[in-house]
Design a protein around this nucleic acid. Structure first.
Lengths: 338, 338
DNA sequence: CGATCAATGATACTCGTATGTCAATGAAAA
DNA sequence: TTTTCATTGACATACGAGTATCATTGATCG
């Protein structure tokens, strides 16, 4: 059973210690100005009556909350889970509280989350990507603290950027596939609307194909519906292999469908990469250990989260940031599947 | 480039609208008491000058913050990521802000997170498991709002419990393995210290073994170090199969090592379940699609998160909760691997 | 024409922490 | 003894939203 304890304020401490409110306040804020004995006495009564400073009140007067708002599209993808954990670790070590919002990939939800962060006086705001509603962009632009857009690189950023070049990553993988002699390359993307990462990868694929003089037909690019799942990847690869002109390489942009496609092939006796090559995008923890290790663009999720939190910290400390666009890079990891 | 906009207060709205502060305040709080025209005028100036209510100030006076603190051990496990996303969805739909803390499985970090939640006037607190530091338990017990302990069931709870019976789940799987005729069953657990879930599963395994008259030798139970990874699972299974007395069934308590073990066997040509059976714990999204589908205790992670948030909501609305121990259950999913 | 009521305003105060200004005390230093 | 300084206190005020208690205005109603 629980006792409904009422709040203990600084005033209560001062009464209990037989001192004035100001002395107690000073003991905590400017310890040098109060006698060591008094300080100790105050410290003791604080512990005795279980005083916990009210950070809401402190935030109101100090005009800073030590809170940072973070919006991620989803958490069920290990990419964003790792990102969030990376950021959380750095924040915890530096006394910052994370306000988390999960948008479910809807910009309207992102807008609502950002509005709340601002209303709650967050000191900084971190969002995913560059695709926002007009209202959201306006709020972020007018926001008085650091704003970080993550997971991609763009020039027309609001403030700080931490991510990697999705265009270049997709182009690089495409070039690799071309160089390996694959003739029928199909790209499988996520939902392209409202997703600058997917759009940039799409563009990167097309650019690399054109550059090699390859034709990009409408059916060279396929979109899987949101939310992207293992099952959708499995279905998709089978339908691709049912085409009159079978692809000999499939470049899958999302994490889960790639796993699904790979496993579907394995269960149907389709050989990888002999019958069809598979390339993927993400930092699939399983990629290296699958029966056929997966060739993939490895994304440094946790690093993006850490770096993002570090940028925020720098700014909040008042340090100048020379590079407001932080490219954490990516790795083209070549394994057996392509 | 960004303009450092200064805060806009209710007062500013009143000035801009040529009205008194109280009228504006009333227009927002008791709309019935102000003239529709005035209301509209105020609404318009609010949009014009971009007023956003300061929820910190509101929280201070109203004595509620509409924030809920959540501590998870890690996010890189899909279990807790799904849990967090489930809770986040319900909270978003009901105007609650999530304060997230990632403890990295350290009770000291959990304590720090809880202390901060309280200092920030969170309306409710959600933690993982029942293992807390003394100080943390004391704070939670004295906390004036709802407290939910998740992911396990216990009688000596602080307040509300949402989880499943880890003891029973482990026992059920063990009984199943015994019933299938496996003779040498080894259980692989996570770190047992500071983890009531691991401890309960351990106990469940032992109980089921004893109940069947089976001997539990010291080497029948193996712990993998934290953090549990795919690699550690792969290494572990190989070392188990190097033993003079090879196990014919391995029950792995954690998600990632189970995947690792499975994949390691496949790459080494070890047949599952003929050479060794593997059973697991978690709701591995991959389990069903692996070349050898995995027999597992399926945990309803997202459901735990949702139910937890719903319990919190009920309490905050003042509704009575008849059942303070919510058992969301689990599924023994029998597939090919055991 | 006086009474009633809707609409708005003025003033003061709350929430808990924090600071700025000045005063009072007492002890040590000049 | 006078000066200086460390220590503590008293009082006012800020932060932004919000409420409680009157007061004022004007319009409508009987």
């Amino acid at each position: 059973m629980r006792t409904g304890k009422s709040k203990v304020t600084l005033k209560d401490v001062s009464k209990a210690a037989g001192l004035s409110l100001i002395t107690v306040s000073r003991a905590l804020r400017q310890p040098d100005t109060v006698h060591p004995d008094t300080r100790e006495k105050i410290q003791k009564t604080i512990e005795d009556i279980g005083y916990v400073p009210n950070l809401v009140a402190r935030a109101l007067v100090s005009q800073k909350s030590d809170m940072v708002g973070v919006v991620v599209p989803v958490l069920y993808s290990s990419l964003f889970a790792d990102f969030t954990q990376g950021a959380a670790g750095v924040m915890r070590a530096n006394g910052l509280q994370m306000l988390l919002g999960v948008s479910d990939r809807a910009t309207s939800n992102e807008e609502e989350a950002v509005r709340t962060f601002i209303a709650r006086q967050a000191d900084a705001i971190i969002v995913t990507g560059f695709t926002h509603t007009d209202a959201c962009r306006k709020m972020l632009t007018n926001f008085h603290g650091p704003v970080v857009e993550t997971w991609n690189l763009r020039d027309e950023a609001i403030d700080i950027v931490v991510g990697y070049d999705n265009f270049r990553a997709a182009a690089e993988m495409t070039r690799y596939l071309i160089s390996k002699g694959y003739r029928e390359i199909v790209m499988v993307g996520g939902a392209f609307e409202n997703n600058d990462q997917a759009t940039d990868r799409h563009a990167g694929f097309v650019a690399a194909m054109r550059e090699a003089g390859r034709e990009v037909r409408p059916d060279s690019i396929v979109a899987v519906p949101n939310p992207t799942t293992i099952e959708s990847g499995a279905e998709l690869i089978m339908s691709l292999l049912d085409r009159p002109v079978k692809p000999d390489a499939v470049f899958i942009q999302a994490e889960l469908p790639a796993q699904g496609a790979m496993l579907a092939c394995l269960s149907h006796g389709i050989r990888i990469p002999e019958d069809v090559a598979i390339a993927s995008f993400g930092d699939l923890i399983l990629s290296a250990l699958l029966p056929v290790p997966l060739t993939t663009i490895k994304v440094r999720s946790s690093e993006i989260g850490k770096r993002t939190a570090e940028m925020v910290l720098k700014r909040l400390k008042g340090e100048h940031i020379e590079e407001t666009v932080q490219d954490v890079g990516f790795d083209l990891v070549i394994r057996k599947s392509a």
